[in-house]
């Protein structure tokens, strides 16, 4: 597809810890189209954040390595880009919002000093122009009295405000792609809704693509066009948003949806997927989800399922192995 801004092809990442090596990401494929909001969903340890750090080129240098695959951004392979060239992309063409607004801002510099940084690095602007741009972007994310805020320190702002500052930091150079790693997880529910709404508007106004990493299916339903479901370092399902909720094909996705608390009815007991995500070093043969899957049969423990496609709906489950793609 030519309109894809980001293509991840067969990405494999290796982590070294001591003498052991583990592969937290094993053959991940997905695409993000221009102007699209793509959700990446999964439990903790599924490899969502590692994937996003890999796209930013921010994987820990000494302990991790991309062993195979390609990250293609706007038609260029950026997988093995030199640090110096990667720096030109970071904060400029791709920017990132992190999970923890409380600790993601430097406590000893003012908001203005920190927000000036991307412009200083990527744009040839005077101090005055930078200040103007910073105030502008702060207004855009709905921060009142921006002229004063730029002289304040992070600890003087609330969590919601700080996350707005983080968003404005990511916005400054008008990136083509914004990655948001659990942007609302650390916030109060009411603030969460505000921030999501803000991100939605900003994405539209700035004509960006958004990669939204979250474990919250509610957030996904609210924000995304398409969803990638990750489990234990693999993608188990990719689908358009409505289709995913109406007809989830992978038992893991179904489990995730069933575990969502519903608003109006009180269930007797909240559904939960039994067991835990296997650690990367525990993964052997067969399907990664087999040991927790309520529908697993013998084949699931023997052979790793390939990706089955039903139009644009992909899933990695042996149950899809029928001509019509019907669930048995």
């Amino acid at each position: 597809m030519s309109d894809a801004i980001l293509k991840i092809k067969n990405l494999k990442i290796e982590f070294k810890s001591g003498k052991e090596t583990v592969q937290p990401i094993r053959g991940v494929n997905f695409e993000l189209k221009k102007g699209e909001t793509l959700g990446v969903v999964g439990e903790s340890g599924s490899g969502k954040s590692v994937t996003s750090l890999a796209i930013m080129g921010l994987l820990p240098e000494r302990t991790s390595k991309i062993v195979d695959g390609e990250i293609n951004f706007k038609g260029n392979d950026i997988t093995n880009l030199k640090e110096k060239q990667y720096r030109k992309i970071r904060g400029n063409e791709i920017s990132m919002i992190f999970q923890e607004p409380m600790t993601s801002l430097n406590p000893v510099f003012t908001i203005g000093q920190q927000l000036s940084e991307p412009l200083r690095q990527h744009r040839n602007m005077s101090k005055k122009e930078i200040e103007k741009a910073v105030i502008n972007v702060l207004n855009q994310v709905g921060i009142p009295r921006a002229e004063q805020i730029i002289n304040e320190y992070p600890h003087q702002l609330s969590g919601g405000m700080r996350q707005r500052v983080m968003i404005s930091l990511a916005l400054l150079c008008e990136p083509d792609l914004m990655i948001a790693d659990e942007p609302t997880t650390a916030l109060d529910v009411t603030i969460q809704a505000q921030i999501l709404e803000l991100m939605k508007n900003i994405k539209q106004e700035n004509d960006m693509s958004l990669l939204l990493i979250t474990h919250d299916l509610g957030v996904v339903a609210e924000m995304c066009d398409r969803v990638v479901v990750m489990y234990a370092g693999e993608i188990v399902e990719v689908a358009e948003i409505n289709e995913l909720f109406n007809e989830p094909l992978h038992p893991y996705t179904r489990g995730l949806i069933d575990s969502m608390p519903t608003q109006n009815t009180r269930k007797e007991r909240l559904y939960s997927i039994r067991g835990q995500v296997p650690r990367p070093n525990e993964i052997t043969k067969g399907c990664v989800f087999a040991n927790r899957c309520p529908l697993a049969f013998s084949k699931c423990f023997e052979e790793t399922p390939p990706v089955f496609a039903r139009d644009d709906h992909l899933s990695k489950c042996w149950l899809q192995n029928t001509k019509e793609g019907e669930v048995v």
């Binding site: 921010l58 720096r87 970071r90 904060g91 992190f98 993601s104 430097n106 690095q121 990527h122 930091l169």
Partner: peptide, 15 residues
């Protein structure tokens, strides 16, 4: 190892 160093890195700040 702090988060804010990662933030700065993600803004394209040179080493």
């Amino acid at each position: 190892q702090k988060d804010y160093i990662r933030t700065a890195k993600a803004s394209g700040v040179p080493t």
